[in-house]
């Protein structure tokens, strides 16, 4: 994709993200944070491609580390967010 298009994507995503996230109540700010945190592990995609096509061993090793870190971020983030959100949900079931 051309730089101009990428910058456009960046601006639109920032704008939409800003709008959607402003509506999340304070109550859920911690899960929101760990959830978006998990999503920021999206760099994994970059890490996979870079590592796969890396020619030197130096790059391959670095890429391997990057994949491990990004996966911890993704899996850990989503799992812990799920745990937290279920705590909130549980209460609702009890109430009704």
């Amino acid at each position: 994709m051309s730089p101009i298009l990428l910058i456009l994507v960046f601006i639109i995503a920032t704008f939409l993200g800003y709008k959607v996230i402003s509506e999340v109540p304070t109550l859920l700010h911690t899960p929101l944070m760990s959830g978006t945190n998990a999503i920021s592990g999206v760099t994994l995609l970059g890490a996979l491609v870079s590592t796969a096509f890396a020619a030197s061993n130096k790059s391959k090793t670095l890429g391997f580390i990057a994949i491990v870190l990004a996966t911890i971020n993704l899996v850990g983030g989503f799992a812990v967010t799920d745990r937290m959100l279920k705590m909130f949900k549980k209460k609702e079931a009890v109430n009704k």
Binding site: V9, F10, G17, I21, T36, N37, I39, T43
Partner: peptide, 10 residues
């Protein structure tokens, strides 16, 4: 780019 931007905004 898009997902990173969303997290950045958050």
């Amino acid at each position: 780019v898009s997902v990173g931007a969303i997290v950045g905004a958050s």
